[in-house]
Design a protein around this nucleic acid. Structure first.
Lengths: 392, 392
DNA sequence: TCTTCTTTCTTCGGCGATCGAATAAAGAAG
DNA sequence: CTTCTTTATTCGATCGCCGAAGAAAGAAGA
């Protein structure tokens, strides 16, 4: 059962079930949705007529008539997607089945201000859109994950740390103007959470997805939906005070933040302070894999600090799973340290059935999430009928 | 607009709007619910026929025909309610308008095990029910707030600390059997959150309600509904590790928990250690009001520790309000300390519109919440038609 | 081979919730 | 004394969904 919190039987819900493989025939849908067979048949017929669903042969009999298999045609609609990091961007197209096409990464320094970055991003997205259209696909919009706070209503960047010039930048509207498509912008941890939830944990209703990379963020799924909080900044664990960070100043202007001891940026800085060359999270990962002791220690300690904060979160929020994503989650010591601290500190009731796992989609998770979000929210404008906008 | 997350137009939703004064006439309901006037009229008629709603005269004209005012009759249905503390119980009846009747408190030591306590509770509730029936009211069930973890599905107590003999006790079913009415049991912080949300913050969707008394707990409202988490233990902030608690052992078996330095029990113990007589939270409050310096310092420090944990919660959950309830919330220094720490440590974005307030219903908040919850969940069985069970 | 049962899917009539237009009631404003 | 506004009801019409009946197609046993 998918945890999508839509009306059961909505077009989006049916597509979701078929796309994820949860349901392969009308009979499956009847079981999953709990609706009458007649209703499901009617709904499926609509979707087939609209070209959003196709029948593809028959499946194996289970003792009776063979089911007529349903498929989401991959050649149909896609959304462009971009996962922005502070020093690179990853772009690609995402289809209704959740598959990514034409995924590509390039260096891009967001810290030099919005205009040049957005220009380059728009260029890449436009080229990508052209290639997708040439392949016969319809492009319905673009979803962007941005490494800083975003107001999801206005699509503006709000007070990002370490990225001067971006405050209140109208990223969504500016980009939409440049590429001529509807655009959805959200925080990178939020799109990561959406992606992981859809791809690997669709049946879970309460989920915390941590993005540990150059910075630290988290996205929250509550009641099966992205939880944003009152002002849209829910999931921030980066600027929580940690004793180990003591008086250390943070980019946010406060002192003692988790980010100042446990982020990729902080680890790299600490390594450089010990005379070890390290700049990006990739460098850190390489050092850990090479068994460099300082790097391993720092990463493990970062995991402990993150675990300490997550301990509060797990007790308070009592999620079904904590998913560790972002570049640093590829480092085993970090994952192990988080696990250890959580099991040690949290209530048995909160951890007894808690899954603590690394993200399953690897580096593409955020990208796929951004595309997925765009497909859902923008499909209506782009030609899909009756895909309701999922609101939080 | 109420944040009740029901189907718009459900019987419960209509009652809620009228009971809270949000809507006073059919026309108001049309505006609030966004339904067609004909639909609202029909729904209201049903409720009037069922005796759940009455017409009471006409209101002032706003330039046209005068509205026919609607009222929730207080003489109608009530739920019994009990707010259990570890050393006392508070009982009363709660009407559909949210008013409490016949509220009373008496000493009762839960730590001596379930059977005697439940016997006494059942006796008081039965007497209460008789008095309510004598007053012409219908009693539809009882709602109980219990000071420990409760499995809301089975109505069983789960692993409460400091209360031997209660583990897996079938509190709901046992009590239902004794008083002959349907019973709802939930954690005390949860019912407190429900009560405060309904009485004072009905328009807010994301809310954290802290109960600081002999122990520390919190109830979470997310998307306008009580949030329980995966295993039903969401909102636990009591057993979060706090550095100031160092190696101090906690009743949960772990060390360094918030509870061991910031709970009423811990403060009282510390005072006794300084030769000051203090046993209950009432004693502590009295000492603080008398200006006893040690007590004031301890309470203020408890507030700081609670604030430290809430800082993580506020950044992560980004609620619209933090409500401080429980006996200790009546101590100004505690509220002030929490405020100070939150404003100092949290993201500006998370605190700029955050309300940090003491509970508005005082000592009755939990009781009213328990009654409210019971009315909603049990009304169907007790004669109210179509009051849907609100699930989390 | 010939039933009988299972599974899958469609057709069709009907129910219930809701809507919208028309109407009525009652007062405000000119 | 007419016209407009607000409030409330009545009455078809519509829409989504359900459930019964049946059709299609195969499995399994006699």
């Amino acid at each position: 059962m998918t945890a999508a919190e839509e009306q059961p039987g909505s077009a989006a819900h049916v597509l979701e079930l078929v796309a994820t493989g949860t349901a392969r025939s009308r009979a499956d849908l009847v079981r999953e949705l709990g609706l009458a067979a007649s209703t499901v048949s009617a709904r499926v017929q609509e979707l087939v007529d609209a070209g959003l669903l196709t029948e593809s042969g028959e499946g194996a009999s289970r003792g009776g008539r063979r089911p007529r298999l349903l498929r989401v045609p991959d050649g149909g609609t896609v959304a462009l997607a971009a996962d922005l990091g502070s020093h690179h961007i990853r772009t690609g197209a995402v289809g209704l089945t959740g598959t990514g096409f034409d995924i590509d990464e390039c260096a891009l320094d967001l810290t030099t201000g919005p205009e040049p970055a957005v220009g380059l991003l728009a260029g890449r997205l436009t080229a990508l859109a052209d290639r997708q259209r040439a392949a016969g696909r319809t492009v319905c919009g673009a979803g962007i994950g941005f490494p800083g706070p975003v107001d999801p209503v206005s699509g503006r960047v709000v007070a990002p740390s370490r990225m001067p010039g971006w405050h209140l930048y109208e990223l969504r509207d500016r980009l939409a103007e440049l590429i001529g498509l509807p655009v959805l912008v959200d925080n990178d941890a939020n799109v990561l959470a959406l992606g992981e939830h859809r791809a690997a944990h669709a049946s879970l209703r309460h989920l915390v997805v941590v993005k540990a990379g150059r910075g630290i963020g988290s996205g929250v799924i509550s009641h099966g939906r992205l939880y944003r909080g009152a002002r849209g900044c829910a999931g921030d664990i980066s600027h929580v005070r940690v004793d180990a960070a003591a008086e250390r100043p943070c980019s946010c202007g406060n002192i003692g933040c988790l980010e100042s001891v446990a982020s990729g940026a902080a680890i790299a800085a600490a390594l450089r302070g010990q005379g070890i060359e390290a700049d990006s999270t990739t460098d850190i990962l390489r050092l850990v894999e090479d068994g460099e002791p300082h790097a391993t220690t720092l990463v493990r300690q970062a995991g402990r600090h993150i675990g300490g904060v997550l301990g509060v979160v797990v007790n308070f929020f009592n999620p079904e799973a904590v998913v560790l994503g972002g570049a640093l989650a590829a480092a085993e010591p970090l994952v192990a340290a988080v696990r250890g601290v959580l099991y040690e500190r949290c209530l048995p009731m909160a951890t007894s059935e808690l899954a603590i796992v690394a993200a399953s989609c690897g580096p593409d998770a955020g990208l796929l999430g951004a595309g997925h979000a765009a497909l859902r929210e923008l499909a209506a404008e782009g030609g899909l009928p009756a895909l309701p906008v999922v609101r939080t």
